[in-house]
Amino acid sequence: MSEIRSTPDRIIKAFIELFRDCGYKGATTRAVAERAGVNELTIFRHFGNKKGLMEAALQSISYQPMLEKIIHEEMTWDLEHDLRVIAEDYLSYMEKISDLVLIGVREAEMFPELNEIIVQISKQLKETMVSYFTEMSRRGKLIDIDVDFQVMNFIWMNFGYFLSKCRFGDSVISSSKDDFIKHSIFLFTRGLTP
């Protein structure tokens, strides 16, 4: 039995598939409509324009809801444990959508509307992590730091590992994801813990 999807879900799925196969430029509203089995006007009615469709597609695969769920349900307020859980989940998630991320990074400079959407998603991730670090600081579990800088260091550390593995495989860093997380989170938390 096939899964029944709403029209907006079918359109988003078609856009993501075309983005993966053809990039942002190739994922035209006409091609999306054809793949989704809808009229092109239906796309405009649901999403306004291609930028609106891209926003909806990125939100549908965004890590943000998962991160918020982790913070609300799995945090123990032990910095090393919590950052390990976040890093493991983030890197697993990024591996699943690696081709989309790499295409988005490559094409963002060519398409300002795509870049704008990617920046907003990055800001959401940063804001959620800033809230977590701020709460840890309030609880006296962090040294006196600039929270924004340390959140960005955490994000860069994990995103850098992800990019390195995607681009170079094991030729730059051959250790496993688990070893990377274990060692980097240990060192990172050691520097932040009073």
Rank of each mutant, 00 (worst) to 15 (best):
A33Y: 05
A33C: 08
A33K: 05
E34W: 06
E34D: 13
R35T: 07
A36H: 00
G37D: 04
G37L: 02
V38S: 01
V38N: 00
V38R: 00
E40K: 13
E40Y: 05
L41C: 12
L41Y: 14
L41H: 13
T42D: 08
T42H: 03
I43V: 11
F44W: 12
F44S: 06
R45G: 03
R45D: 11
R45W: 08
H46K: 12
F47D: 03
F47T: 01
G48D: 09
G48Q: 08
G48W: 09
N49M: 07
N49I: 05
K50A: 04
L53F: 08
L53A: 02
M54K: 06
M54L: 15
E55K: 14
E55W: 03
E55F: 03
L58C: 10
L58T: 07
I61V: 15
S62L: 07
Y63M: 13
Q64H: 15
P65C: 08
P65F: 04
P65S: 10
M66A: 15
E68T: 11
E68W: 01
K69C: 10
I70H: 05
I70R: 05
I70Y: 03
H72S: 14
E73M: 04
M75C: 10
T76Q: 12
T76H: 07
D78G: 00
D78F: 00
D78K: 05
E80P: 00
L83W: 02
R84Y: 06
R84G: 13
R84Q: 12
R84H: 11
V85Q: 08
V85H: 02
I86H: 04
I86K: 03
I86N: 03
E88S: 14
E88M: 11
D89P: 03
Y93E: 08
Y93N: 11
M94P: 01
E95G: 14
K96F: 05
K96G: 15
K96A: 14
I97F: 12
I97D: 08
I97G: 09
I97Y: 11
S98Y: 05
D99G: 07
L100G: 10
L100E: 10
L102R: 05
I103E: 06
I103D: 01
G104P: 03
G104N: 11
G104S: 15
V105R: 08
R106T: 09
R106N: 10
R106Q: 11
R106L: 10
E107F: 06
A108N: 09
F111A: 03
F111T: 02
F111W: 14
P112R: 02
P112I: 03
P112V: 04
L114I: 09
E116F: 06
E116W: 07
E116N: 10
E116I: 01
I117V: 15
I117Q: 06
I117M: 09
V119S: 07
I121Q: 12
S122N: 15
K123E: 13
L125I: 15
L125A: 11
K126R: 15
K126T: 13
K126P: 02
E127T: 12
E127D: 14
E127R: 13
T128M: 04
T128Q: 05
M129T: 02
M129F: 08
M129R: 03
V130H: 01
Y132V: 01
F133L: 06
T134P: 01
E135G: 01
M136C: 07
M136H: 02
S137M: 09
R138P: 00
R139K: 12
R139G: 01
G140N: 08
